[in-house]
Amino acid sequence: MTEFSDFASAGRDMAALVLFSGGQDSTTCLGWALERFGRVETVGVDYGQRHQAELVCRGKVLEKMRAMKPLWAERLGEDHMLSLPVLGEVADCALTDERRIAFESSGLPNTFVPGRNLLFFTLAAAIAYRRGARVLVGGMCETDYSGYPDCRDNTLKSLQVTLALGLDAPIILETPLMRLTKAETWELAQRTGGDEFVKLVRDETHTCYMGDHEHHHAWGWGCGECPACRLRAKGWEEWSGSKRF
């Protein structure tokens, strides 16, 4: 991962578009981008996901991030929301249908939404092209993840080449969490915005696959049982053990 000081001078003259769902990973990535790029915009996608609570969280998180640092307020630009119901219609998975989360014969959990990240980055690239941004930022991770093939580093490197060729323009895909555990993602949030940012990520974001935003835990909101909650809780426990939270 590029350290803040190494990238600051180059990124200051660049614009970035962050895939921003309102969850822990994308919020951490948004803070990461705001420390680096001169202009940062966000894009969210409503594809009929069961965890609609994350979309509700988006506005509040953006508002609080603007108020957190004058530099972030200055750099944080327009938010784009896309409606993509067709993805929910064809996905046939536990994130878009009311069904029990389980593993399929392929070995993948049925929370895998086929083609989701490929579509998200393609649409984001079209927005970035018109908005004069050359950097796309996503919270994909190959370290602590469920085996989703469109989260793999090789998949996204290949997609970066395809998008640059298809648009005949330089496109860079940044995935700052790709090699991090969930505990290291909490640490990145702390290094990015300090204790205040960690508290925002903990108390304002939503990751739970079941859309449970009624039960609050030491690590944030969620059912506490779905894979997303368990991973978030495990990372918090590992990271916060030596912290004051």
Rank of each mutant, 00 (worst) to 15 (best):
F120T: 02
M14K: 14
Q190S: 14
F20S: 06
R99H: 07
P170S: 13
T28R: 09
D144H: 14
L159D: 03
T155I: 03
E3D: 06
K243R: 12
R152M: 11
D144F: 05
S83E: 14
L84G: 10
C57H: 12
T42E: 12
G88L: 00
V113P: 04
W221V: 08
R116W: 11
C141I: 12
L71Q: 09
Y148W: 03
T143F: 15
M14Y: 04
I101C: 14
W72C: 04
V161M: 08
L34Y: 05
F112K: 04
Y47M: 14
L136I: 01
V56Y: 09
E54Y: 11
V18G: 12
P114F: 02
Q160R: 09
R130L: 12
F121C: 07
R116E: 04
G194M: 13
L123F: 06
G88S: 00
R75L: 07
G139W: 09
P149D: 03
L200M: 14
G77S: 11
L177R: 09
D92P: 07
A53M: 11
K69P: 05
A91F: 06
V90W: 01
C141G: 10
F103I: 07
W239Q: 12
E41K: 06
R100M: 15
L156P: 03
V40W: 00
E204S: 15
W72V: 03
L95D: 00
R66T: 12
D97F: 11
T143P: 09
E104W: 03
G166Y: 08
A10H: 15
R179Y: 01
R66P: 09
E98L: 15
D46G: 01
W186D: 03
P85K: 04
E89G: 07
L177K: 02
A102Y: 14
D13H: 05
E35S: 08
D46F: 08
A126L: 11
T42A: 07
F4R: 15
R58K: 10
L82N: 09
I171W: 01
G115F: 03
W239L: 07
A67V: 09
V43M: 10
L163Q: 10
C141Q: 08
A233Q: 01
G88A: 04
F197P: 10
R36C: 08
S106L: 05
C223F: 11
D150L: 00
G220E: 00
A124L: 10
S9E: 13
L165I: 10
L87M: 04
M178F: 01
L19R: 04
M1I: 15
N110S: 06
G107P: 08
Q24K: 14
P70M: 04
A128R: 02
I101L: 15
A169V: 13
L159T: 10
V43R: 14
T27K: 02
L30K: 13
K60N: 11
F112P: 03
G235N: 01
L200D: 05
D150F: 13
D144E: 14
L123K: 02
G23T: 04
P227K: 06
W219P: 05
R131Q: 09
R12A: 13
R116Q: 02
G88T: 01
A233I: 12
G235W: 05
L82R: 06
F120M: 04
